[in-house]
Design a protein around this nucleic acid. Structure first.
Lengths: 181, 181
DNA sequence: GAGCACATGTAATTTGTTACATGATTCC
DNA sequence: GGAATCATGTAACAAATTACATGTGCTC
């Protein structure tokens, strides 16, 4: 079975223990969403496909009176994940930044409108950096105890550096534009 | 008519003059693709929708003996673009970085495999930075002459800074992991 | 007992990629 | 004249978002 990226995220999240679709979505939100996101509409169907392929095992549970399905990684699933992690080929790398898209066409705007746009962008980057900082604090403590959050902490750190860089660039560019106008 | 992002890219590219689908694709490749991409499968159908909405006007041309359709921005199109550029709401911001995704789950890897991954990532970031530098050189000269490439040059500069930051982070992290192992 | 956050999922739609088909032009 | 590249487009498919439907438990 050829793994798509959603499948990879699901399998990867299960390496720490069984999870439901909802659990995974919540984990993604605070961790990988900054570089790879997935919605319910992808998660639940993908779990079923993975089960059919034998890469995860469903274990129906009770949650109040409501049905709930948690999935556990199988040995085949763990192997498939490892194989994917070391597979060769182009690493997909793609960004969608509506702020930059607007800025690219900003010669259609008045100077003050362009500056206002840069401020909006900066606020967004700063907010993302703050989010990541918020999840990093408890994570850093947990890493001291056990080591398996090391790489999540690393990627979060990269995100912080990235967003800080972007916010800084906006600030400088705001000043440049203000001076030029 | 509600503009989707592909429509915005098309209208924006036309502000400098009439273009065919192929022309636009080529322009996107060397400019916006770093923060907003579009494929032929989106471009050609979107041009037809924009024409039906009266935001662009088709002018069939000869290109050798082969048919070729170039589109020009109409006044309505220019207005729609401007309206979108100043419209409020969340700015979409999303990244898909397969390298980071792999790194996030790298506790499933051997230390040297993780380091090899970081090297692959760094090579990719460096290549992207180099691409952007290559288009910046001629652009910077053109800006000196006329001013309407100012914002494209600005966004390219941001891209360079971004990719340089990421490449630098990889290099540092490679060293850290090597020391820790 | 009304409202809200938590929780689980599906269906419809939109968006985006990939593979294909075709022809013209250029360079060797 | 053969291969590579430029050029124009469509159709099939895959991926992703959004809106919806439903129920539970908590708090005011």
């Amino acid at each position: 079975m050829k793994l798509n990226r959603t499948a990879v995220v699901l399998l990867g999240m299960l390496t720490k223990g069984p999870l439901s679709g909802y659990d995974v979505k919540r984990l993604i939100q605070i961790s990988t969403s900054h570089f790879w996101n997935a919605s319910y509409g992808q998660i639940y169907p993908e779990f079923r496909r993975l089960e059919q392929a034998g890469l995860v095992a469903a274990s129906p549970q009770e949650h109040g009176r409501r049905a709930r399905t948690a999935y556990a990684l199988t040995e085949a699933g763990r192997r498939a994940l490892r194989d994917w992690l070391v597979s060769p080929g182009e690493l997909e790398l793609q960004m969608r930044d509506e702020g930059l898209l607007r800025l690219f066409f900003a010669d259609q705007l008045e100077p003050d409108e362009a500056i206002a746009l840069l401020r909006r962008m900066r606020a967004l980057y700063a907010a993302r950096a703050a989010e990541l900082r918020a999840v990093c604090v408890p994570t850093a403590e947990a890493v001291a105890a056990e080591d398996d959050l090391r790489f999540p902490l690393l990627t979060a750190g990269m995100g912080i550096e990235l967003y800080d860089t972007l916010a800084g660039w906006c600030e400088r560019t705001e000043r440049e534009l203000a001076a030029g106008a």
